[in-house]
Design a protein around this nucleic acid. Sequence first.
DNA 1: CGGCTCATGTAAAAGCCGTTCACATGAGCT
DNA 2: AGCTCATGTGAACGGCTTTTACATGAGCCG
Lengths: 246, 246
Amino acid sequence: MSWRKEQRRAERGYHHGNLKEALLQAALGLIAEKGAAGFTFADAARMAGVSAAAPYRHFRDRDELLSSIAQRGFEQFESRLTAAWDDGRPDTVTAFERVGKAYLAFAREEPAFYNAMFESGVPVDSNPALQAASERAFNIIRAAAERLAALAPPGTPRPPAMMMALHIWSMAHGVASLFSRGDAARRKLPMSPDELLEAEVLIYLRGLGFPTDRRSQARSAEPPPVPPEASSGSGVPPGGPWGKPK
Amino acid sequence: MSWRKEQRRAERGYHHGNLKEALLQAALGLIAEKGAAGFTFADAARMAGVSAAAPYRHFRDRDELLSSIAQRGFEQFESRLTAAWDDGRPDTVTAFERVGKAYLAFAREEPAFYNAMFESGVPVDSNPALQAASERAFNIIRAAAERLAALAPPGTPRPPAMMMALHIWSMAHGVASLFSRGDAARRKLPMSPDELLEAEVLIYLRGLGFPTDRRSQARSAEPPPVPPEASSGSGVPPGGPWGKPK
DNA sequence: CGGCTCATGTAAAAGCCGTTCACATGAGCT
DNA sequence: AGCTCATGTGAACGGCTTTTACATGAGCCG
């Protein structure tokens, strides 16, 4: 009856316009605030200005909303990782590290998505689209690992790219999940999560025999002739991947 | 009124005997079944055979129960890690890898505890006792890293033990959280989580310059005279830390 | 042994949430 | 204008959390 309601109806088109989108946005905000566990279907409805039953016209239940958000999260995640990887430019190792940073940045800047994707208890296989999105995201890491593996110094056995990808993923997820979540109470660290992960990945790559000091890394993705000293123990950059934190 | 109730009263002593313990056990079972998110205070009360209000005599609210379980989890975790570390016997690297395996074993065998500790959204600092227990557990890893760092091959800069500990923790947590949770739907892997983590840690240690083939590792914790070839690139075990999975 | 007291448990109630169902409404088509 | 179907509403059910007033019986004190 109130003119306010009429006006709102006018602003948006039909009934609500696009309740589905509004609910997704509201849920995203609520999850960012109170976590996926604290998020409530009714709250999202209230925030969108509709009754508590309305959301059921767009989502089978609360879990489906969560799953939709997780799916969207994986899609954005994929595009961020893709951009960071930038097809291995300017060189494979640099791009690889950028992917690691992008992983952490996503966890930090999109806590709601990250929460829905990895910490909400939504099983990845609850929804084929979700599963597919998750795999597409992982495939970025996998493709990067593939390129990196191809650069393995000759003479040493070539590491399986899949394994490398899983290792990198576990490191990034471990750091993000333990140390890199914004406002929520987390552990105290002697260095930033970014630095922590960067050092971890560098040490790991060195363990695989990759030269990890920038000087020896050619700018092209094509394997340059590796100077023999680069894969020996003395190729360690002075100070190591750690060193004084800035 | 029912004789059944009377009998139960007889079996246990006073009122219930030890409701607190019964509630903790019930909650543990429920969390193992349905996850920390699905666990309900009322269910635990029902399982213990008391009214829904009774638990409030022992826990301020549901969160405090969860936090108590997380605390207990960290205590058991600490004792498991301590046993696995076994003060670095028979040699530091072997013991170190055993700690990694113990980490995964705990996540796999005590999903309820692991869930409450790391995935329930309970902030570590919600309870000083919880925080302390968590730190004690981490200190095991830290102490192990300290011993390992002391073995760093001479000539190379010594890695900070704290950083190593954080790296190892993030790897173990990453693998456990992404791949190593029992019944819940998880990703498919080309190798077991244990193998994945073992390879990851070995590569990492090699990246720090540690000799990682067993032959070159003395049984004592005292640094043996490191043969110079052990820290060079040719010290790689044939096949690398991966190789055919058994 | 009798009675007091306090910890421990119960019942009932308020408030919230998820979910369902019958019903209302209005957008777009004929 | 009228039909129809997608979309939103209101009311209702059961369940959960938490609080409050009340019950009970264990252990102590005389």
